[in-house]
Protein backbone atom coordinates (compact mmCIF):
# COMPACT_ATOMS: atom_id res chain seq x y z
CA UNK A 1 0.00 0.00 0.00
CA UNK A 2 1.28 3.41 -0.90
CA UNK A 3 -0.61 5.33 1.75
CA UNK A 4 1.72 5.69 4.75
CA UNK A 5 -1.23 6.13 7.12
CA UNK A 6 -2.35 2.62 6.29
CA UNK A 7 0.87 0.82 7.18
CA UNK A 8 0.27 -1.00 10.38
CA UNK A 9 2.45 -1.14 13.45
CA UNK A 10 3.91 -4.53 14.24
CA UNK A 11 1.72 -5.52 17.23
CA UNK A 12 -1.46 -5.02 15.23
CA UNK A 13 -0.07 -7.10 12.39
CA UNK A 14 0.78 -9.88 14.83
CA UNK A 15 -2.68 -9.76 16.42
CA UNK A 16 -4.58 -9.83 13.14
CA UNK A 17 -2.46 -12.62 11.69
CA UNK A 18 -2.85 -14.71 14.82
CA UNK A 19 -6.63 -14.17 14.93
CA UNK A 20 -6.82 -15.33 11.35
CA UNK A 21 -4.61 -18.34 11.93
CA UNK A 22 -6.51 -19.39 15.06
CA UNK A 23 -9.80 -19.16 13.16
CA UNK A 24 -8.36 -21.06 10.21
CA UNK A 25 -7.30 -23.78 12.59
CA UNK A 26 -10.68 -23.91 14.35
CA UNK A 27 -12.57 -24.10 11.08
CA UNK A 28 -10.40 -26.57 9.22
CA UNK A 29 -8.81 -28.81 11.81
CA UNK A 30 -11.88 -30.87 12.88
CA UNK A 31 -12.54 -31.86 9.28
CA UNK A 32 -8.94 -32.65 8.42
CA UNK A 33 -8.61 -34.64 11.64
CA UNK A 34 -11.74 -36.68 10.90
CA UNK A 35 -10.69 -37.30 7.30
CA UNK A 36 -7.29 -38.53 8.42
CA UNK A 37 -8.87 -40.61 11.18
CA UNK A 38 -11.37 -42.26 8.84
CA UNK A 39 -8.51 -44.35 7.46
CA UNK A 40 -7.71 -45.77 10.89
CA UNK A 41 -9.39 -48.38 13.05
CA UNK A 42 -11.46 -47.51 16.09
CA UNK A 43 -8.61 -48.36 18.48
CA UNK A 44 -6.59 -45.52 16.98
CA UNK A 45 -9.24 -42.91 16.22
CA UNK A 46 -10.61 -43.30 19.75
CA UNK A 47 -7.39 -44.13 21.45
CA UNK A 48 -7.44 -44.81 25.15
CA UNK A 49 -3.66 -44.87 25.33
CA UNK A 50 -2.48 -41.75 23.54
CA UNK A 51 -4.17 -39.29 21.21
CA UNK A 52 -1.11 -39.33 18.98
CA UNK A 53 -2.08 -42.87 17.93
CA UNK A 54 -4.77 -41.36 15.74
CA UNK A 55 -2.02 -39.80 13.65
CA UNK A 56 0.49 -42.65 13.47
CA UNK A 57 -1.99 -45.51 13.72
CA UNK A 58 -0.09 -48.33 15.49
CA UNK A 59 -3.23 -50.43 16.07
CA UNK A 60 -4.24 -50.05 12.44
CA UNK A 61 -0.79 -51.21 11.42
CA UNK A 62 -1.06 -54.25 13.69
CA UNK A 63 -4.52 -55.20 12.35
CA UNK A 64 -4.18 -54.39 8.67
CA UNK A 65 -0.44 -54.32 8.02
CA UNK A 66 -0.33 -50.66 7.06
CA UNK A 67 -1.10 -47.42 8.91
CA UNK A 68 -4.00 -46.72 6.53
CA UNK A 69 -7.01 -48.90 5.97
CA UNK A 70 -10.16 -48.67 3.90
CA UNK A 71 -12.00 -50.95 6.32
CA UNK A 72 -14.39 -48.20 7.45
CA UNK A 73 -15.30 -47.26 3.89
CA UNK A 74 -15.69 -50.90 2.89
CA UNK A 75 -17.98 -51.52 5.83
CA UNK A 76 -20.10 -48.44 5.20
CA UNK A 77 -20.32 -48.49 1.41
CA UNK A 78 -20.50 -52.23 0.76
CA UNK A 79 -21.60 -53.98 3.93
CA UNK A 80 -24.11 -51.37 5.08
CA UNK A 81 -25.03 -50.42 1.50
CA UNK A 82 -24.31 -46.73 1.84
CA UNK A 83 -24.10 -46.55 -1.95
CA UNK A 84 -27.87 -46.89 -2.14
CA UNK A 85 -28.28 -43.83 0.04
CA UNK A 86 -25.79 -41.97 -2.16
CA UNK A 87 -27.84 -42.76 -5.26
CA UNK A 88 -31.04 -41.64 -3.51
CA UNK A 89 -29.38 -38.40 -2.45
CA UNK A 90 -28.26 -37.81 -6.03
CA UNK A 91 -31.80 -38.33 -7.34
CA UNK A 92 -33.35 -36.08 -4.69
CA UNK A 93 -30.85 -33.24 -5.10
CA UNK A 94 -30.94 -33.20 -8.92
CA UNK A 95 -34.71 -33.06 -9.08
CA UNK A 96 -35.09 -30.60 -6.22
CA UNK A 97 -32.63 -28.20 -7.86
CA UNK A 98 -34.23 -28.40 -11.29
CA UNK A 99 -37.82 -28.08 -10.11
CA UNK A 100 -37.26 -25.36 -7.54
CA UNK A 101 -35.26 -23.27 -9.99
CA UNK A 102 -37.98 -23.58 -12.63
CA UNK A 103 -40.73 -22.54 -10.24
CA UNK A 104 -38.53 -19.99 -8.54
CA UNK A 105 -37.43 -18.13 -11.67
CA UNK A 106 -41.00 -17.73 -12.90
CA UNK A 107 -42.28 -16.63 -9.49
CA UNK A 108 -39.30 -14.45 -8.65
CA UNK A 109 -39.56 -12.70 -12.00
CA UNK A 110 -43.26 -12.00 -11.48
CA UNK A 111 -42.62 -10.66 -7.97
CA UNK A 112 -39.86 -8.39 -9.22
CA UNK A 113 -41.91 -6.89 -12.05
CA UNK A 114 -45.30 -6.48 -10.41
CA UNK A 115 -45.80 -3.29 -8.44
CA UNK A 116 -49.00 -4.26 -6.68
CA UNK A 117 -49.33 -4.38 -2.93
CA UNK A 118 -49.93 -8.10 -2.77
CA UNK A 119 -46.35 -8.77 -3.88
CA UNK A 120 -45.30 -7.32 -0.54
CA UNK A 121 -47.67 -9.62 1.32
CA UNK A 122 -46.50 -12.60 -0.68
CA UNK A 123 -42.88 -11.83 0.15
CA UNK A 124 -43.73 -11.37 3.84
CA UNK A 125 -45.63 -14.67 3.85
CA UNK A 126 -42.60 -16.27 2.24
CA UNK A 127 -40.41 -14.83 5.00
CA UNK A 128 -42.68 -16.30 7.69
CA UNK A 129 -42.75 -19.61 5.82
CA UNK A 130 -38.96 -19.60 5.62
CA UNK A 131 -38.77 -19.20 9.38
CA UNK A 132 -41.03 -22.20 10.07
CA UNK A 133 -39.06 -25.01 11.65
CA UNK A 134 -39.16 -27.86 9.15
CA UNK A 135 -40.12 -30.37 11.77
CA UNK A 136 -43.39 -28.53 12.48
CA UNK A 137 -44.30 -28.87 8.80
CA UNK A 138 -43.31 -32.53 8.85
CA UNK A 139 -45.70 -33.16 11.73
CA UNK A 140 -48.41 -31.75 9.48
CA UNK A 141 -47.46 -34.00 6.57
CA UNK A 142 -47.25 -37.38 8.23
CA UNK A 143 -50.91 -38.13 8.90
CA UNK A 144 -52.27 -36.97 5.49
CA UNK A 145 -49.42 -38.75 3.72
CA UNK A 146 -50.18 -42.00 5.52
CA UNK A 147 -53.84 -41.60 4.58
CA UNK A 148 -53.09 -40.91 0.93
CA UNK A 149 -50.54 -43.70 0.89
CA UNK A 150 -47.80 -41.54 -0.57
CA UNK A 151 -45.48 -41.75 2.43
CA UNK A 152 -41.98 -43.12 1.96
CA UNK A 153 -41.43 -42.45 -1.73
CA UNK A 154 -38.76 -40.25 -3.31
CA UNK A 155 -41.15 -38.12 -5.44
CA UNK A 156 -43.12 -37.08 -2.34
CA UNK A 157 -39.96 -35.98 -0.60
CA UNK A 158 -38.75 -34.15 -3.67
CA UNK A 159 -41.95 -32.12 -3.92
CA UNK A 160 -41.91 -31.37 -0.21
CA UNK A 161 -38.31 -30.19 -0.37
CA UNK A 162 -39.10 -28.03 -3.40
CA UNK A 163 -41.97 -26.40 -1.52
CA UNK A 164 -39.91 -25.83 1.62
CA UNK A 165 -37.21 -24.33 -0.57
CA UNK A 166 -39.56 -22.00 -2.46
CA UNK A 167 -39.64 -19.07 0.01
CA UNK A 168 -35.86 -18.78 -0.04
CA UNK A 169 -35.62 -19.26 -3.82
CA UNK A 170 -38.32 -16.66 -4.39
CA UNK A 171 -36.62 -14.07 -2.20
CA UNK A 172 -33.25 -14.62 -3.75
CA UNK A 173 -34.37 -14.62 -7.39
CA UNK A 174 -36.76 -11.75 -6.74
CA UNK A 175 -33.90 -9.55 -5.55
CA UNK A 176 -31.75 -10.78 -8.43
CA UNK A 177 -34.38 -9.90 -11.04
CA UNK A 178 -34.77 -6.47 -9.43
CA UNK A 179 -31.14 -5.86 -10.36
CA UNK A 180 -31.85 -6.57 -14.05
CA UNK A 181 -33.07 -3.32 -15.60
CA UNK A 182 -36.78 -3.19 -16.36
CA UNK A 183 -36.03 -1.56 -19.72
CA UNK A 184 -34.69 -4.83 -21.04
CA UNK A 185 -37.95 -6.77 -21.06
CA UNK A 186 -40.10 -3.68 -21.52
CA UNK A 187 -38.22 -2.86 -24.72
CA UNK A 188 -38.91 -6.39 -25.92
CA UNK A 189 -42.60 -5.92 -25.17
CA UNK A 190 -42.67 -2.63 -27.05
CA UNK A 191 -41.27 -4.57 -29.97
CA UNK A 192 -44.33 -6.79 -29.85
CA UNK A 193 -43.39 -9.63 -27.52
CA UNK A 194 -45.86 -10.93 -24.99
CA UNK A 195 -44.72 -10.93 -21.37
CA UNK A 196 -43.78 -14.57 -21.61
CA UNK A 197 -41.82 -14.11 -24.82
CA UNK A 198 -40.03 -11.15 -23.29
CA UNK A 199 -39.09 -13.35 -20.36
CA UNK A 200 -37.86 -16.11 -22.62
CA UNK A 201 -35.96 -13.95 -25.12
CA UNK A 202 -34.70 -11.04 -23.05
CA UNK A 203 -34.42 -12.30 -19.48
CA UNK A 204 -33.43 -15.95 -19.71
CA UNK A 205 -30.14 -15.22 -21.54
CA UNK A 206 -28.95 -12.86 -18.80
CA UNK A 207 -30.29 -14.58 -15.69
CA UNK A 208 -27.77 -17.42 -15.36
CA UNK A 209 -25.43 -15.93 -12.73
CA UNK A 210 -28.35 -15.44 -10.33
CA UNK A 211 -29.86 -18.80 -11.15
CA UNK A 212 -26.59 -20.63 -10.59
CA UNK A 213 -26.10 -18.97 -7.21
CA UNK A 214 -29.65 -19.79 -6.15
CA UNK A 215 -29.23 -23.32 -7.49
CA UNK A 216 -26.20 -23.85 -5.26
CA UNK A 217 -28.27 -23.06 -2.21
CA UNK A 218 -31.12 -25.30 -3.36
CA UNK A 219 -28.55 -28.03 -3.80
CA UNK A 220 -27.23 -27.47 -0.28
CA UNK A 221 -30.72 -27.56 1.21
CA UNK A 222 -31.61 -30.83 -0.49
CA UNK A 223 -28.21 -32.39 0.11
CA UNK A 224 -28.04 -31.42 3.78
CA UNK A 225 -31.62 -32.07 4.74
CA UNK A 226 -32.12 -34.37 7.67
CA UNK A 227 -35.52 -33.53 9.13
CA UNK A 228 -37.68 -34.07 6.08
CA UNK A 229 -35.83 -37.02 4.57
CA UNK A 230 -35.52 -38.89 7.85
CA UNK A 231 -39.23 -38.62 8.58
CA UNK A 232 -40.73 -38.96 5.10
CA UNK A 233 -38.64 -41.71 3.51
CA UNK A 234 -38.95 -45.39 4.19
CA UNK A 235 -35.88 -47.38 5.14
CA UNK A 236 -35.03 -48.55 1.61
CA UNK A 237 -35.37 -45.06 0.12
CA UNK A 238 -33.19 -43.39 2.75
CA UNK A 239 -30.77 -40.62 1.75
CA UNK A 240 -27.26 -40.08 3.07
CA UNK A 241 -27.74 -37.89 6.14
CA UNK A 242 -30.53 -39.95 7.77
CA UNK A 243 -28.54 -43.05 6.87
CA UNK A 244 -25.57 -41.72 8.84
CA UNK A 245 -27.86 -41.16 11.79
CA UNK A 246 -29.18 -44.71 11.41
CA UNK A 247 -25.58 -46.02 11.51
CA UNK A 248 -25.14 -44.44 14.91
CA UNK A 249 -28.02 -46.43 16.33
CA UNK A 250 -26.52 -49.72 15.22
CA UNK A 251 -22.86 -49.00 15.80
CA UNK A 252 -22.43 -49.81 19.44
CA UNK A 253 -20.26 -52.81 18.63
CA UNK A 254 -16.51 -52.47 18.30
CA UNK A 255 -15.39 -51.15 14.92
CA UNK A 256 -18.79 -50.08 13.62
CA UNK A 257 -18.24 -46.47 14.71
CA UNK A 258 -15.67 -46.23 11.96
CA UNK A 259 -18.42 -46.97 9.42
CA UNK A 260 -20.18 -43.82 10.54
CA UNK A 261 -16.92 -41.86 10.43
CA UNK A 262 -16.26 -43.08 6.89
CA UNK A 263 -19.82 -42.22 5.86
CA UNK A 264 -19.53 -38.73 7.36
CA UNK A 265 -16.30 -38.11 5.46
CA UNK A 266 -17.94 -39.42 2.27
CA UNK A 267 -20.74 -36.90 2.77
CA UNK A 268 -18.32 -34.01 3.36
CA UNK A 269 -16.07 -34.58 0.33
CA UNK A 270 -18.65 -33.44 -2.28
CA UNK A 271 -19.12 -30.23 -0.30
CA UNK A 272 -15.36 -29.62 -0.35
CA UNK A 273 -15.38 -29.95 -4.13
CA UNK A 274 -18.44 -27.74 -4.42
CA UNK A 275 -16.88 -24.97 -2.35
CA UNK A 276 -13.64 -25.30 -4.29
CA UNK A 277 -15.36 -24.60 -7.59
CA UNK A 278 -18.13 -22.24 -6.53
CA UNK A 279 -16.61 -20.28 -3.64
CA UNK A 280 -17.26 -16.93 -5.34
CA UNK A 281 -20.91 -17.70 -6.12
CA UNK A 282 -21.59 -18.99 -2.62
CA UNK A 283 -20.12 -15.88 -1.04
CA UNK A 284 -22.09 -13.61 -3.34
CA UNK A 285 -25.26 -15.59 -2.61
CA UNK A 286 -24.78 -15.31 1.15
CA UNK A 287 -24.38 -11.58 0.92
CA UNK A 288 -27.02 -10.95 -1.75
CA UNK A 289 -29.90 -10.64 0.69
CA UNK A 290 -27.86 -8.45 3.01
CA UNK A 291 -26.70 -5.89 0.51
CA UNK A 292 -30.05 -5.39 -1.13
CA UNK A 293 -31.89 -5.21 2.16
Amino acid sequence: MSNPAETKPLPIKVITISVVLIWLFLAAFPFLWTMWGSFKVEGDFFSRANWFNAITGPVTERQHGSPFTLAGYEGAWIEQEFWKAVINTAIVTVFVVIISLTLGTLGGYALARSGFKYTFWLLMAALVFRAMPHVTLVSGYLLPFFQLNIWGYLPTTIIVLVAINQPFTLWMLHSFFLSIPKDLDEAAMVDGCTRFQAFRLAIIPVMWPGVITTGLFSFLLAYNDFTVTSMLLSQENQTMIPQINAFLGSTQEEGKVMYAVAAVVSAIIPLFVLILFFQRQIVSGLTAGAVKG
Binding site: V20, F31, N224, A267
Partner: peptide
Protein backbone atom coordinates in the same frame (compact mmCIF):
# COMPACT_ATOMS: atom_id res chain seq x y z
CA UNK B 1 -9.38 -18.56 4.89
CA UNK B 2 -12.70 -18.04 3.14
CA UNK B 3 -12.56 -21.54 1.68
CA UNK B 4 -12.06 -23.23 5.03
CA UNK B 5 -14.49 -20.88 6.80
CA UNK B 6 -17.32 -21.95 4.54
CA UNK B 7 -16.98 -25.60 5.47
CA UNK B 8 -18.34 -25.56 9.06
CA UNK B 9 -21.31 -23.55 7.83
CA UNK B 10 -22.19 -25.50 4.71
CA UNK B 11 -21.73 -28.95 6.23
CA UNK B 12 -25.08 -30.04 7.58
CA UNK B 13 -25.46 -29.59 11.37
CA UNK B 14 -25.83 -33.32 11.98
CA UNK B 15 -22.53 -34.11 10.27
CA UNK B 16 -20.74 -31.08 11.73
CA UNK B 17 -21.84 -31.92 15.24
CA UNK B 18 -20.85 -35.56 14.80
CA UNK B 19 -17.35 -34.49 13.76
CA UNK B 20 -17.02 -32.44 16.95
CA UNK B 21 -18.78 -35.09 19.02
CA UNK B 22 -16.15 -37.67 18.14
CA UNK B 23 -13.39 -35.22 19.01
CA UNK B 24 -14.79 -34.35 22.43
CA UNK B 25 -15.29 -38.00 23.30
CA UNK B 26 -13.13 -38.79 26.33
CA UNK B 27 -11.04 -40.92 23.98
CA UNK B 28 -10.98 -38.24 21.29
CA UNK B 29 -8.41 -35.50 20.94
Amino acid sequence: VIFFSLIPMLVTPLVGSLVLFWMIDSRGI
